[in-house]
Design a protein around this nucleic acid. Structure first.
Lengths: 146, 146
DNA sequence: ACCAAAGTTTAGCATAGGCTAAGTTATATG
DNA sequence: CATATAACTTAGCCTATGCTAAACTTTGGT
């Protein structure tokens, strides 16, 4: 038995934070993909496997596998050897991600970090920011000329 | 061939951000474990499997498996059926994590979110914050009475 | 000193997300 | 219009991170 068993301070409450982080992680990849597909469609008219792989810095086969999951999740549609399209749900998720991403990136810039750091850190942070925190960042931007 | 192949704007630069995120993720779990083990040792004199599992909200067996990896990485030491100890390297990592965590959490509070939100969001954000951004958060705290 | 309860470990399974190598399809160009 | 090249897919591998169920230690209480 442990030395001091009495009064474990809210183990359940603590664990909630970690559960949220794990949940965020599984949603994260999907978010990155749809956001990138949306960008590619806007920039170049279509989204292709190779471009996604290049931008993410992973192998082509990895993209193919992930796209299958996104198709199961009804975020994209795709025919063999053809370009990739977003479903309505996919577009919604992409727009949401872009909005979040833009706020976080601008916020970091306003905080005083370099363009480069803002770009890189926002990529990691955006998926872990609650609506509450996002709102607070928005307010900060409003005060500080975002 | 894609419609518009010319001038892919710095695909390599883009991919760097995602590579950083993926690297962060693999370091993340180790960080959470050692930080938690350090907390348990400080609070209760020893760190045990069950407590870690409870606080992380995962099954006991999952903790056991992860601890094996941490042992291979020389972050902890452990004998069968005994408590867990941190190596020097492990303590260093734990301290580093705590420092980061504390800054991020205080920063969020200073930004104006609730205690609860700060606690939860900081858990996800801390692993994706560069030293640059951390410094900027520190400065903000200094200006705003952290 | 023993036994039951609590804690720890092992075994076996699943999914996600990486990779390389080899095969298939589309297309751009000679 | 045939074919080389680029793009895509499949197959098969690996590791990380989760789970449950069953087996094994430790230990506290009688």
């Amino acid at each position: 038995m442990a030395l001091a068993t009495k009064k474990i301070p809210s183990a359940k409450l603590r664990s909630a934070a970690f559960k949220r982080v794990r949940a965020d992680h599984s949603a994260e990849l999907a978010g990155d993909y749809v956001e990138m597909i949306a960008d590619l469609i806007d920039e170049r008219g279509e989204a292709r496997c190779t471009d996604i792989a290049m931008r993410l810095g992973v192998a082509n086969a990895t993209v193919v596998k992930t796209l299958k999951r996104l198709q199961s999740a009804e975020l994209i549609t795709q025919e063999p050897y053809r370009a990739i399209f977003l479903t309505v749900e996919g577009w919604k998720m992409a727009e949401d991600g872009r909005r979040k991403h833009a706020i976080v990136e601008k916020f970091l810039l306003a905080l005083g970090v370099s363009q480069e750091t803002a770009r890189i850190d926002s990529e990691g942070i955006e998926h872990h920011v609650s609506t509450d925190t996002l709102r607070a960042m928005g307010k900060f931007l409003a005060r500080n000329g975002g």
